[in-house]
Write a protein that binds this DNA or RNA. Structure first.
Lengths: 112, 112
DNA sequence: TCATTAATTAAGGAGCTGCTTACATGGCGG
DNA sequence: CCGCCATGTAAGCAGCTCCTTAATTAATGA
C-alpha cells in the first residue's frame, strides 16, 4: 500500500529525516534561499531541491520566486495538526489509565 | 542515504502511516493483543506484525508475552521527544518573527 | 498425543526514497 | 547578445517500505 497520501502522514514523513528537520530549524530563524539552506550539507543541489519538494508537498514551507533566487519560508500550520495528534496520545494521565486497565484485565481472568 | 537511524526519525517515521497511528490510538485506550489490534484492518497478520515491529523499534509500544498472546502496551516516552521538537518549531510567535526578518531583508536590499 | 489457536519468521515482489550526474531554464551583468 | 549565476528537471540506481503467501514456533485443551 504505502498510501500515506493523507495530510498528517505527509507531515510526519517530511519530519522523519534529519536533513529536512535541520532545514526547518534553519528556516525557523528566518527565511532563506536554497543556496543558504544547502550550505551546511555535503550533498548535491538536486538532493536539496528534492528535500525542499518534500517539505513543500507537506505544506511546511513556501517557495517564492524573486529574481533568480527561491526564498523559502516556514509555514507552521501543518505542525499544528501534528502537534494536536501527538498531544492527544501522550501524557502520564493516559499512561496511568492504561496501567489501570491492564490491572483490571488481569483481575478479570487470563484470557483477554 | 535514508539513514533515519536516529531516535527522532524512527518515531516520526513510525507515525507517518495511518495504520500505525490507528493502532496507537487503539492502544491509547488500553493494552491489546495482536489479534485485537489486527481486527479493524483488512490486512494479513504478518503485515500487522511488521507494523508492530516498526512501532516497537521506535520505542512506542512494548510487547509482553503471556501464554500464546502478545499483549501490546503504549509507551509515550518517545512521543515526548517528538512533541518537544514540534513545539519548538511552531506557533504564531515565531511566524511573526520570520515575517519581520523577511521584511528587514527586503529593506536591506535585493540580494540576500 | 494431536489438532487448534496466536503470532512470528522467511522469502519475494511492486513501488517509493534519497542520492547521484548530466542537462535545461531563466534572470542578470558586462 | 552571451556567458555566469542560482535553481530545477530528467534519468538512473541502491536500498528501504509495505504487502503478500507459505512455513514455523509455541502454548492450549480435548
Amino acid at each position: 500500500m504505502a498510501d500515506a497520501a493523507d495530510e498528517l502522514s505527509l507531515v510526519f514523513r517530511a519530519l522523519a529525516d534529519p536533513t529536512r528537520r535541520a532545514m526547518l530549524s534553519r528556516l525557523h530563524r528566518g527565511p532563506a534561499t536554497v543556496g543558504e539552506l544547502a550550505e551546511p550539507f555535503a550533498m548535491s543541489r538536486p538532493a536539496i531541491s528534492q528535500h525542499l519538494a518534500v517539505l513543500e508537498r507537506a505544506g511546511l514551507i513556501e517557495r517564492t520566486v524573486t529574481a533568480q533566487w527561491r526564498t523559502c519560508t516556514l509555514r507552521t500550520g501543518p505542525l499544528d495538526d501534528a502537534s494536536d495528534w501527538v498531544e492527544r496520545h501522550r501524557g502520564e494521565w493516559n499512561e496511568r489509565f492504561d496501567l489501570l486497565d491492564e490491572q483490571l484485565r488481569r483481575m478479570r481472568g487470563g484470557t483477554p
